[in-house]
Design a protein around this nucleic acid. Structure first.
Length: 779
DNA sequence: CTCAAATCCCTTTTT
DNA sequence: GGGATTTGAG
């Protein structure tokens, strides 16, 4: 096979990343620098030029959508290649039928065998094979037909444990906060016992107790939560050498996207798979093996779920050669931005300079300046929405070639979407909203999924209780309590009682007949599990259970809507059956639990996109509206007093700005309805941190004078308080939030921007630009 | 056992 | 303002 010609379209750094074969590699890739392209081509290159078997490649992406897109692109690359080879024509010049045929050949031969997806979906797949080999420290075990509990299932369990089992004051131990603490513990890789050791105080003891009971409950339901999907493989790999060895040998080439947003447990997983759990130097045998990670510390925005960008900063020490950036052979920087107009990029660069925790990295524009960034102040959230929609209309009227799909409205919180939805709907503009109340969170969908879960996993008592009386079949509280009691006494899942006619007849009264009929219905579908498709099971159970009939009978608009949603669910199942290799009910349930709203966002649909800044990560749009830039909203009030959180908010803002290709609008309001009350709003502090000469429509009130001076003379910028300061390695300095630190490096003048590395007590070294972030010398 | 009214969170961000 | 959960009457 001739070499792949896609390499010629890359810049030298990208090409270096793509052609890297064995050994470790860290790619520091700024926003819009073509990192997804590098990742895609690298996989293609491994297969094509290095003859790596696709089965031996593990690629972790941040969303399922990204995985699907990368697979599609790889398919295109090889289909293109085959078209040239077989027909001496470009792919697009061939008959559609031939094109499809080529693509499906590539799919069967190559992309189907790639292990590509999110940490969660890949781990769920691994567990499907091996979870029966796992036992936790308390002897809890799971079976391969485990359920994946979503956030509401999990919260209900924790709530029950806190208020019922332990009879605690739920004011003192808020189930939500307790759940969050358990999740954080899991993301740090801590078991209940380990958590207890680290938190021996009263509160820690209680949380550890809840955590342990919570694990009991999960095990009793043969269920895992999201965090377990990663934690269990890590624990399994740590306790079972053979299992680890198998997966280590299988995954020779590992790629991780968005590495700055991995957490400790995810890192442990990657480390184990890469090193087979062996300490250095023995794992430094990189023959036919690589670990390739891509990320950007400036875009780390998931610390609330325990993501830790220090993991990325430590890559060179962990896996790489540990040399300084310029000397390192295991580090590549992608610093050219191909996405945004220069003006937009400069605004982003200027903002992010205010952060202290950064990697020394610059992002160079490759595109012409374009129009200035536009800032608009609206009276309230309705006026803000009207402004945005007016702008969209105006732009489209002036440029008929631009479609609605070119626009995105990005906000900090999901709650901000409502006014935009209202105005867009009233103005008859198509829009696509990501997040908020998700499809799989709707009541009827959860009911249907619960039926399927009960069929797939008899131990899933949570789902069983959800559907046992839906629709109403006369099985009420007292009946369920009685059955539950019996199950608890015997220490068996509720299903064991329900499925035994004698038990049911003894325990319950009037309802016995209904319970027996229900149990028989579930069992009859379970018997057909192996021989019936997922779609037939879903359709069958919704019919048998009377769920469809109940909704049809109601005849309300709401019921009709629910019926539509259920039909949509059936469509999702049938689409799944067409797409996937493993069409089992369990595989579908895993996909349903792990798919995000974002995964369904179709491109090319001419609709305005609405989503949170977090959801927008990794996406790009020609025209972006960044809305609600108000102090307390963005940055969010919970972050304002914590310097580290505030920096994360700023990174979030940076992510938002760098989504825009051609034009960026920023809006804020004078007042806004919050919980039904009108609250006055102060412009976000981030607005004052943008370069005034590149932003039209915003005059910072406080720093106006200073801003004017600095733009006139860039060389003196930032030395606001003092005359030029001399910094030396070893100096002790004071930072307003990190306290006292010691200078460890001085990075020379870069375009007149000085960077110094400072080690503060209790944190990793920070790169600081002293002309932007005030530092006081103590020597 | 079912339904409607009262109450009680809520708003960070998500796989 | 609004949606989920809980309470109390029939």
């Amino acid at each position: 096979m001739e070499s792949v010609d896609f390499l010629t379209s890359l810049n030298p750094s990208q090409r270096q990343a793509v052609e890297h074969f064995c050994g470790p590699m860290l790619v520091v890739a700024g926003a819009g620098s073509g990192k997804t392209r590098a990742l895609t081509y690298r996989v293609a290159n491994l297969i094509d030029n290095h003859k790596v078997n696709p089965e031996n490649i593990l690629a972790v992406t941040f969303t399922n959508k990204a995985a699907r897109e990368i697979k599609d692109r790889i398919e295109s690359i090889f289909a293109q290649q085959q078209a040239q080879k077989k027909y001496q024509k470009p792919l697009s010049a061939l008959e559609p039928a031939i094109q499809t045929q080529l693509r499906s050949q590539i799919y069967r031969k190559l992309t189907k065998h790639l292990w590509m997806g999110t940490f969660h979906s890949l781990c769920a797949r691994i567990l499907r094979y091996d979870i029966n080999k796992y036992q936790d420290e308390k002897g809890r075990q799971w079976k391969p037909n485990f359920s994946i509990f979503d956030e509401s299932d999990v919260l209900a369990l924790v709530k029950q444990i806190v208020t019922k089992t332990l009879n605690l004051d739920d004011k003192k131990f808020d189930p939500r906060k307790t759940r969050y603490k358990i999740s954080n513990a899991k993301n740090l890789g801590l078991s209940p016992q380990q958590y207890l050791q680290e938190n021996p105080d009263y509160q820690g003891r209680v949380i550890a107790e809840v955590y342990s009971l919570y694990q009991d409950a999960l095990a009793a339901n043969n269920a895992l939560d999201f965090d377990d999907l990663i934690l269990v493989p890590v624990a399994l790999f740590s306790q079972n050498e053979q299992v680890l060895a198998y997966w280590h040998q299988k995954f020779c080439h590992i790629l991780v996207d968005e590495y700055q947003d991995t957490n400790r447990t995810q890192y442990d997983l990657i480390r184990l798979l890469t090193t087979n759990g062996e300490p250095p130097p023995s794992f430094h045998n990189w023959q036919n093996r690589s670990i390739f990670v891509v990320g950007d510390v400036d875009q780390s925005i998931y610390s609330f779920r325990m993501a830790d960008y220090r993991i990325m900063l430590e890559f060179q020490q962990d896996f790489g050669d540990g040399l300084a950036d310029d000397d390192s052979r295991t580090l590549i920087k992608l610093e050219e931005n191909y996405r945004s107009r220069e003006n937009i990029l400069e605004v982003a660069n200027h903002l992010i300079q205010n952060n202290t925790t950064r990697i020394d990295k610059i992002l160079r524009p490759t595109r012409s300046p374009g129009v200035p960034v536009c800032c608009h102040k609206a009276d309230d959230e309705m006026a803000e929405a009207h402004f945005v929609v007016d702008q969209i209309r105006t732009i489209i009227n002036q440029n008929p070639e631009i479609g609605f799909g070119s626009f995105a409205i990005l906000y900090r919180t999901n709650a901000q979407s409502r006014p935009f939805e209202d105005v867009l709907r009233r103005e008859d503009v198509h829009y696509n909203i990501v997040g908020g109340l998700k499809f799989y969170d709707r009541r009827e969908i959860k009911d249907a999924i619960s039926y399927l879960r009960v069929i797939a996993n008899p131990a899933d008592t949570v789902s069983l209780q959800r559907v046992i009386n839906v629709p109403r079949r006369g099985i009420g509280r007292t009946t369920i309590d009685g059955l539950n009691n019996a199950a608890q006494q015997l220490g068996v899942p509720l299903w064991e009682i329900i499925s035994d006619q004698d038990s049911v007849n003894t325990i319950t009264g009037r309802a016995a007949k209904s319970v027996n009929r229900f149990a028989q219905m579930i069992q009859s579908w379970r018997d057909r599990l192996e021989t019936t498709t997922a779609l037939d099971i879903l359709d069958g159970i919704l019919e048998d259970s009377g769920y469809f009939q109940d909704l049809k009978q109601q005849g309300t608009d709401e019921a009709d809507n629910r019926l539509d949603n259920l039909r949509e669910l059936c469509n999702a199942v049938s689409q799944f059956q067409e797409e996937e290799e493993d069409t089992s009910l369990q595989a579908f349930l895993a996909r349903a639990s792990l798919s995000s709203d974002l995964d369904n966002l179709q491109e090319g649909q001419e609709a305005v996109s609405l989503m949170t800044l977090h959801s927008a990560k990794g996406l790009e749009f020609p025209i972006v509206f960044l809305v609600g830039l108000e102090q307390g909203l963005f940055p969010n009030f919970r972050s304002i007093n914590d310097p580290l959180s505030l920096e994360e908010e700023r990174r979030l803002c940076y992510v938002g700005i760098t989504r825009a290709q051609e034009q960026l609008f920023i809006t804020h309001t004078s007042e806004r309805r919050l919980w039904g009350y009108r609250e006055p709003c102060v412009p976000s502090m981030f607005l004052a941190e943008l370069p005034p000469d590149l932003v039209r429509g915003y005059k910072p009130l406080i720093r106006h004078q200073a801003a004017k001076n600095t733009t006139k003379n860039k060389a003196t910028k930032g030395t606001i308080k003092k005359s030029p300061q001399q910094w030396n390695v070893g100096d002790r300095v004071l930072h307003r939030s990190f306290g006292v630190g010691k200078i460890t490096h001085i990075f020379g003048d870069h375009k007149g921007k000085l960077s110094i590395a400072v080690k503060f007590q209790g944190s990793s070294p920070k790169i600081i630009n002293p002309s932007v972030v005030p530092l006081e010398s103590l020597d």
